[in-house]
Design a protein around this nucleic acid. Sequence first.
DNA 1: GATGAATGAGGATTCATTCAT
DNA 2: TATGAATGAATCCTCATTCAT
Lengths: 212, 212, 212, 212
Amino acid sequence: MEQTADERPRRRQARGERRIAQLLEAAASVFCTTGYTAASTNAIAREAGVSPGTLYQFFPNKEAIAVELSDRLMHEMRETYGKALRPIAPETPLEEVIAATVDRFVDFNCRHPVFFALMHGPDVPGAMAQEHDALHAALIGRVEALLTPFLPDARTEEIARTSRMCVGIYKGGLELILAHEGAEREAYVQELKNVLFRYLDPLLMDSYPLGV
Amino acid sequence: MEQTADERPRRRQARGERRIAQLLEAAASVFCTTGYTAASTNAIAREAGVSPGTLYQFFPNKEAIAVELSDRLMHEMRETYGKALRPIAPETPLEEVIAATVDRFVDFNCRHPVFFALMHGPDVPGAMAQEHDALHAALIGRVEALLTPFLPDARTEEIARTSRMCVGIYKGGLELILAHEGAEREAYVQELKNVLFRYLDPLLMDSYPLGV
Amino acid sequence: MEQTADERPRRRQARGERRIAQLLEAAASVFCTTGYTAASTNAIAREAGVSPGTLYQFFPNKEAIAVELSDRLMHEMRETYGKALRPIAPETPLEEVIAATVDRFVDFNCRHPVFFALMHGPDVPGAMAQEHDALHAALIGRVEALLTPFLPDARTEEIARTSRMCVGIYKGGLELILAHEGAEREAYVQELKNVLFRYLDPLLMDSYPLGV
Amino acid sequence: MEQTADERPRRRQARGERRIAQLLEAAASVFCTTGYTAASTNAIAREAGVSPGTLYQFFPNKEAIAVELSDRLMHEMRETYGKALRPIAPETPLEEVIAATVDRFVDFNCRHPVFFALMHGPDVPGAMAQEHDALHAALIGRVEALLTPFLPDARTEEIARTSRMCVGIYKGGLELILAHEGAEREAYVQELKNVLFRYLDPLLMDSYPLGV
DNA sequence: GATGAATGAGGATTCATTCAT
DNA sequence: TATGAATGAATCCTCATTCAT
């Protein structure tokens, strides 16, 4: 469409790449501590130990930082779990799939706490909506891919709805998981698995009357 | 003299009450459209049609507005549903309880969209944390009260955990419900009920093996 | 059309009016010394001895300041010369009309040097274009009104063109006048009168073959 | 070795010349669209397709770019019209001289729109004042040279004043000419010629009472 | 109680310029 | 030479809050 942005790819120097990583790291930290909305580009630059101008050499605005951060998170998510998930055999019991998936997602969130901050995004539609949605959509997409083989008879619409519900449940549960530690955290993880299993299991029943 | 003295304060208070209600209404509107973090007191005052100074005559700061708003919401929630819930007979099937509760909560949220904004509150711990938690805690308390009769054998801890999970699920589901309209919204409402029922039903089984 | 701005007239306090005058005076000063484009709102506020926030309580941006300043200048121009010009008798010799008009305009410019800065406006079309044009248009309008009785046979188009030329000439001459002082300035004033007279006189000849 | 040493510098200079031309072209474009004051060196570099660092390898600052641009414009003006003007015979009627000169200047301005931007320069004394004046002075010098043979009796001072007036008139007229197109533009060109002719013709009369 | 004025620090962003590679 | 990185002061503008009237 329009080429206003990114007119030319402009080669990046190694130093620049490092700065970008540094800035994204700083942004992640700031987003986590103050939230996306309240985070300021100046604070991010300060956290990264660079001047405001430097930040703007790499990102046109705060949203672009969140976008890039989201992209990298999604990419790493794919890298880390995408391959691991492929070999899921159709016969794998749902319980195991859920357990593995929740464990992975929780693990991922613990290693990248900013994921949570970005998921909730701005308090409000509008700013950053598209990226917020992009992260969301990616997550939903992954869940859809995961669920589809289990629900061959379901309509696309239903799968979409179910996947969204799962992600919604996951978000609700994650908040609790991250708010606790140790054994209590584990307990919440288990509860989350229970919720998801009990929610999804009956749906499978419908699809695979001969299942189990 | 004494009559006037008797009346004046009343009038003042009456006017004050109207002002406060006006301001809270405006705040609700602004919180909904811009989110709590991005909302500005000036914007609230403008929306209320008063000057900034007037706002600060009734509230010491932005957070106090959110606090009062939350308090009133919680109060109304109690007023509206508290009484209605009391006559719940222990024999009432869980399914009905859940359906009624979800319907009521969803209805409440639709009538007070700011509830959702306040629930999510600032993206982050810090500002308004206590109030955010107060709303939360109130909600959890209600759910605990609702669940306890169904889970007489459960330990307090478990009830707390389960209630929190329910609230977490509810929040996740509500976001989806509010994001859709018409039939699709209804479908999500039903899904939310399903999730909660399937999650809670087995717990009851344990408690009331002979139940229902 | 749209009511986005100036939703309610908001009463102004006396203090506010004084501040506005003060700010406009400061703006005039800054526009004169740095030019419109390079003038900064902070510099204007500083010059006025107030904080940036105060400036923005009265003006939404730099352009609005220029607009208001222009409006007031135009208003004063009307106040000062509008009445004085009315009694121009048709028999008044062109030479006198020009001399009086130039003297008045020059005098006005000397008392309000910012007029010149605003006339030239931003270096470029775009920003402030409309206001720049408004000042211009007002000036041209005045000249048209002045010329029309002298050129009864001319088409509107021609009068417009002639008036624009006169204003253009005037602007060119004014720059020279303001750049000099004392006798030299007077000499340029005289030259400007000469130019205008010699330009316009032949046009009258055509109209009033029996004139003079 | 020496050959390469001989060639390299040349190539470098050739490349440098190209770069400079490229940068000046870009600067002309940016000055035209945003005006001198608002033009940024970064924007010029971007327009030229080079990095900011490269720009500063050839020009110490923004003003130097304008200076060099002006110099080249003046040079081209001399190249193009200087020779053409020389053979002006003293008997050439003033009308023709003016017509030819105006046509040439207008033509020049249409081919180099940046000339106009530089003529007006920064709105204000200060930055770039000297260069602004240099362009101006050059223009005035040319007009003086043009007028002197027609006004042999006039004092230097008067010639200077008259020339400045002509340039001032020209600037005023040029703005109108550039603001219009087609037939209307032509009409303004004609008006400008008229103004200048009527202004200057009587001066000649004084000098050459027996002239023509 | 109500208003609008006032603040000044802080927000995002730009810019002329210098530096390392 | 050329590049892109880096700077930090300066830009415009907002905001929570206080003050005078």
